[in-house]
Write a protein that binds this DNA or RNA. Structure first.
Lengths: 248, 248
DNA sequence: CGAAATCTTGAGTATAATCAAAAACGGTGG
DNA sequence: CCACCGTTTTTGATTATACTCAAGATTTCG
């Protein structure tokens, strides 16, 4: 579609086009952006807290996460990242990384130098805006997570994160009929929700018993989407998807 | 200092200059930015979740906060904002606000139209970068708060937020010798930390008993800064202050 | 001085953590 | 195809952190 060479070459461009009307020039410039592609196996750090990277990473496929560690060695995942996301885009303007990014499943990752990104931004102000906007949505997700972890408990907290994942995955075409791949372990959910693995396990059992979710292995199915949204108090406004096909 | 008319007219410019070398043109353009100034009393919403604002607000003096409400009516404060901050700068690129901003103390607030901000950015790309950077630091603070609320408990969680406040206040010159004004109630701390008011009260008593803080009324004094940092596991990297005078 | 807001206290309860071990699963190699 | 290994999930019992409810003390401010 967007690249003459590879049908779904660049999910970032697709994401941008769902909000923005790119001119031919702008689209071409994005497609011409040099990118070093690597395949990275599961559970590997892509970048680490303290790094001073000279490039950013675009997730082309697979699941990754942004996380931080407390001084006591506890991990907190602060967001999940999926195809089309650039989890360390902030390093374009903040020299030192204050978080790490790790794969959760095998990932295809495209590395783009800051130099090339800066060139692109200086030539196309609307692309600057689009990138800026992406980082603002990341911030909105962090805000929502603060509330989720601070003010929701057990089942509700888990339901909310699942709702977010489904809506975001749907926006990039990775959900079929309320079912999707979800290669996230209970221990990883625990690190995202501020729980222990044991507690996540008990929450999931309860949700299965209530027929809220059908989660087995890497596969999630949602039998009753509106009930899951209700339990998770989920309102997708904060994802700023604009084309509301995904928010339904 | 920065304005010929009013000695500390615009703390935003001071903040920017602590990181960036502004040209005379750029500084002048910032000073000429039209701004409607209002004085707002304590505990008032400045903007509300769901608003579609056509301007952003610069906190000139006083304390405010960014907050969200759960469907069940619980409040979560996701960050404190102080002089020099523009807590809703994201509305420049995200049409609908996904959070509210409220005063905690009486505040002087400057409203700047998005039109003027867009003009400024289109004429001065480096100012675009500076604003973008500000929003990226906001995001870094949200990330840190997710970790704080998700993975630290009691005294440690409270200590961390106090450390952040002190370092940020010091960066804008509002700390004298590890003491500062802090017009934040225990109930507001509770909403920021994901605790109840009662629990915050007990935490503060414990911290006072341990001589970690001297907090009475609106005044905070820190007898032993390095111990408070240690208890709160505080590392200021995520604030990206760059001129590290404040981080000491 | 008096009313409202804020802070404090106590007792009982709930949610989630901890620790330890067993069961189930998924992939690998013989 | 099956046995084996490491990972992930599950279970049970106990403990800890934080919540709830309710009331009383103190502070703030008009």
């Amino acid at each position: 579609m967007h690249s003459p060479f590879h049908p779904d070459y660049n999910p970032m461009i697709r994401k941008m086009e769902s909000v923005f009307d790119l001119s031919d020039d702008e689209r071409q410039a994005l497609q011409d952006l040099p990118m070093q592609v690597a395949v990275i196996r599961a559970d590997q750090d892509i970048v680490r807290e303290g790094d001073r990277p000279s490039r950013s990473c675009l997730i082309l496929s697979g699941f990754a996460c942004v996380y931080k560690m407390t001084a006591q060695g506890k991990r907190q995942i602060v967001s999940f990242t999926i195809a089309g996301d650039i989890p360390d885009l902030q390093s374009l303007h903040l020299k030192v990384l204050d978080n790490s990014v790790a794969t959760l499943s095998p990932c295809r990752v495209g590395f783009i130098t800051h130099e090339d990104l800066h060139d692109l931004c200086s030539r196309y102000p609307r692309i600057t805006s689009a990138f800026w906007r992406e980082t603002l949505i990341d911030a909105a997700i962090f805000r929502e997570w603060v509330m989720n972890v601070g003010r929701r408990e057990g089942v509700s907290r888990m339901a909310h994160v699942l709702c977010e994942l489904i809506v975001r995955l749907k926006a990039v075409g990775l959900v079929d009929d309320h079912a999707c791949d979800l290669p996230i372990t209970q221990s990883e959910f625990a690190d995202a929700l501020g729980f222990t693995t044991v507690h996540v396990n008990r929450i999931l059992q309860q949700m299965r018993a209530d027929n809220l979710i059908d989660l087995k292995g890497d596969r999630l199915n949602v039998p009753d989407w509106s009930r899951l949204k209700e339990v998770g108090e989920f309102d997708p406004t904060y994802l700023h998807l604009d084309n509301d096909q995904a928010a339904a």
